[in-house]
Design a protein around this nucleic acid. Structure first.
Lengths: 157, 157
DNA sequence: GCCATGTAGATGATGTGTCATCTACTGCAC
DNA sequence: GTGCAGTAGATGACACATCATCTACATGGC
């Protein structure tokens, strides 16, 4: 990093617009979920993973890989969800270190109740405002950046 | 919301890619700032606002408008930054309710030190991976969604 | 068997964001 | 001037994220 580079005019504009959009959209989605169904976005994502598998149960490390979360974040999140009765723990016979996380009936009801409102909000706030081409472009762009993040692992700074 | 709508295949893919990209990019930027200069993204944004004005001081409500943050978030953030010596409070003569937030010398040094590394990271992780057209498309998209968020104020569910 | 190393997961401290609520001052109607 | 709505900002409680660290079990080399 010899000669420090800087964002040019257009990059600045794009970056600020993106950051603001991102922050406000997330806030709105979170709020809608919270007030509509007492779930957070984090709860929602965990429950989605669990309902995606037939038995409704996963090892925490599988959840982690699916969500791309930090291990400790997941652990704390699961503790909270357990206390609120959304998931339950089960011992794991094959591996004495681990456990299973199982969605409870209450958790199932919660996400079933929350899903339509959440989907509608995502559509209304986001997709209804974009053309098909824009959606395609966004997916393409996101995928590119994700690859980039994977390949640029720990060179930071 | 009679017949519940749902995201179609392509929307699902785009949405998941976007969410993941967004989360991981933010995490990386935060970490780079934190380890590189002991500033959070939030600190950084506040300091940017303050250095954008010549006197380096603003009323909290001006900061709030500039950042589009919740009032209480800003208030807590300023308290923390004050304790770490990045900003300082000044009484406001014209309005007895309010105050000024002033960037300290320490705050100025912190952001001056942090800026090049942060800009470089944003360029490397994000803009270097995109074409000009993609950047333009992103800005356009973000602006559209922002407008949408503004006009869809409180109809939520 | 014994030990080293790796993996699964929990935990406490700390920083951050949101909500609800509170105080204090302003500004206007009367 | 009194009363009252509005605005500026702080605060406590709580959910959330990250970091560092810890425990316990697994696995492979010897």
């Amino acid at each position: 990093m010899n000669s420090p580079r800087w964002l040019d005019e257009e990059q600045q504009r794009a970056w600020r617009a993106y950051l603001r959009m991102q922050g406000r959209l997330t806030a709105r989605l979170n709020r809608q979920l919270q007030t509509g169904s007492a779930l957070s976005l984090a709860d929602y994502e965990v429950l989605v993973q669990l309902t995606d598998v037939e038995e409704g149960r996963l090892r925490p490390f599988e959840l982690q890989r699916g969500l791309h979360w930090e291990q400790s974040r997941l652990s704390h999140q699961l503790t909270r969800m357990r206390h609120r009765g959304l998931v339950r723990r089960e011992e794991c016979a094959e591996d004495g270190r681990g456990a299973f996380v199982v969605i409870t009936e209450e958790g199932r009801q919660a996400i079933t109740a929350a899903a339509p409102g959440h989907a509608e909000t995502v559509l209304r706030l986001f997709f209804d405002g974009l053309t098909r081409e824009q959606v395609t472009a966004l997916e393409q762009l996101s995928t590119q950046i994700l690859d980039r993040l994977d390949t640029t692992e720990e060179t930071t700074k």
